[in-house]
C-alpha cells in the first residue's frame, strides 16, 4: 500500500525543479530509481515533507480510445486506476506527475468472464468484485484465496486487478497469482492490442514491461482442470500488511500422483519467482510431507532482497517454509497442522 520506504535508494536531487514552492519549505529529495527505469513515473521522483498530492492536470476520459490518445500525447502522465497504491505515493510525493488520467469512468474496462478455459478479467475490475465472484471461487480457487489477503475491505472496494498488476509490488498477491497461473496481460496502445506473457511482464522493481503509451485492459488466466488443488499462504507482520514472503501452489493430482504442479514465491525478489526445480521434482510423485520438505529446501537458494522488514537470509528461510506449507495445504496434508488453524 505505502511506497515501501525501506526500498528507497538515496541519490542526488531530482533534475526537475518541483513546481510546488508554495509550501515554502525545502523537502528532502530522494531518488528512487533511475527515471528511465520507471516508465510510469517519467519525470522526477521525490519525497517531501508535505502529505498532500502535488499539483497536476486531471483528465477524465470516457472511452479507452480517448484514454490511449491522452496517454500518448501528454507528457509525464500517470494512469489512475483504483488509486490504492498511487494515491499514497502521490500524498507522500513519491510520484510527481504533470497529468493524471483517471480510468474510473472509462466504459467497458471491468468484468469477469470465462471463455474457452480462460478467465478474462477487465483491468478495472475491483478486487471486491473478484472477492465475491462465484465464477472466480469455482474456477480459480487460488485467486479467491489470494484476494482475502489484499489490504482491507475499504481498499478492496477501490483497488483494481489491473492497478495492482501494473504497480507490481514484489509482494502483491495478484501479481503472485498471475505468475502462478501463467496469465497473459492484454495491453492497448496507439498501434493496437498486444498480449504479454506474465513471465515477461515484470521489467524490474515496480516496473511493468509496457510502453509509456500503453494501457493494460485485461488479464487472461488459463484455468486449471476442475478439481485441481490450490493454496495461497503468506507471512506478514499483521493481517492486511504486505507479505514479507508469500507462496502459491497449484496441484493437479491424478490417481494419487501429482500430474502437474505450479509453485510460485513472492516477496523474495523484485517479482514473484517460479520454483521450477520443485515443480519438476514433485511431478509424477505421490504427494507427501516428507517429499515436500525435502524438495522445498532448494528454495533457500533463491536470490533474495533485504530491506527494513527482513534480511535476505530470513526471506530465503521463509521461501522454503512457505513453499512446503503451500504444497502441503494444496495437497490436503495440512488439515491438522498447527500453522493452518483458522484465524
Amino acid at each position: 500500500m505505502s511506497g515501501r520506504p525501506g526500498l528507497l535508494r538515496l541519490g542526488p536531487n531530482c533534475e526537475k525543479a518541483c513546481d510546488e514552492k508554495a509550501d515554502g519549505e525545502e523537502g528532502t529529495h530522494l531518488r528512487l530509481l533511475p527515471v528511465a527505469a520507471v516508465p510510469y513515473t517519467r519525470g522526477c521522483l521525490c519525497i517531501r515533507t508535505a502529505m498532500k498530492p502535488p499539483a497536476f492536470q486531471y483528465h477524465d476520459p470516457k472511452t479507452l480510445t480517448e484514454a490511449v490518445s491522452l496517454l500518448g500525447t501528454l507528457d509525464n502522465a500517470k494512469l489512475l486506476a483504483g488509486g490504492q497504491s498511487l494515491m499514497p505515493m502521490l500524498n507522500m510525493r513519491f510520484v510527481l506527475p504533470d497529468h493524471v488520467i483517471d480510468l474510473n469512468r472509462v466504459e467497458g474496462m471491468s468484468g469477469i468472464k470465462e471463455a474457452g478455459g480462460t478467465l478474462e478479467i477487465g483491468a478495472m475490475t475491483r478486487q471486491r468484485d473478484l472477492e465475491f465472484s462465484d465464477l472466480v471461487k469455482a474456477k480459480c480457487p487460488l485467486l479467491h484465496q489470494a484476494i482475502m489477503h489484499i489490504g482491507h475491505r475499504q481498499t478492496r472496494n477501490r483497488g483494481t486487478i489491473g492497478g495492482s498488476l501494473c504497480h507490481l509490488d514484489p509482494a502483491a498477491e495478484l501479481v503472485l497469482v498471475a505468475m502462478a497461473h501463467d496469465a497473459t496481460v492484454v495491453v492497448v496502445g496507439p498501434n493496437g492490442t498486444r498480449e504479454i506473457a506474465f513471465a515477461d511482464f515484470p521489467a524490474g522493481y515496480l516496473t511493468p514491461a509496457i510502453e509509456l503509451n500503453e494501457i493494460v485492459t485485461a488479464i487472461r488466466i488459463p484455468l486449471w482442470p476442475a478439481g485441481h488443488k490450490a493454496a495461497f499462504i503468506e507471512f506478514a507482520r499483521r493481517h492486511g500488511d504486505f507479505a514479507i514472503v508469500s507462496a502459491a501452489a497449484l496441484l493437479q493430482i491424478d490417481g494419487g500422483k501429482i500430474a502437474r504442479a505450479s509453485l510460485t514465491i513472492g516477496g523474495v525478489a523484485v517479482a514473484p519467482v517460479r520454483a521450477a526445480e520443485v515443480e519438476n521434482a514433485i511431478t509424477g510423485q505421490a504427494p507427501s510431507t516428507a517429499l515436500f520438505a525435502k524438495v522445498c529446501e532448494s528454495c533457500r537458494s533463491f536470490e533474495a532482497m533485504a530491506d527494513i522488514h527482513a534480511s535476505a537470509e530470513y526471506r530465503q528461510h521463509l521461501a522454503a517454509v512457505l513453499s512446503r506449507r503451500a504444497l502441503e495445504k494444496a495437497a490436503g496434508l495440512a488439515d491438522n497442522a498447527p500453522w493452518n488453524r483458522a484465524h
Binding site: M87, N91, R158
Partner: peptide
Amino acid sequence: EAVRSCLMF
C-alpha cells in the same frame, strides 16, 4: 461502499 477518503480525489 466504505472507502478511505484520503485515497480518492
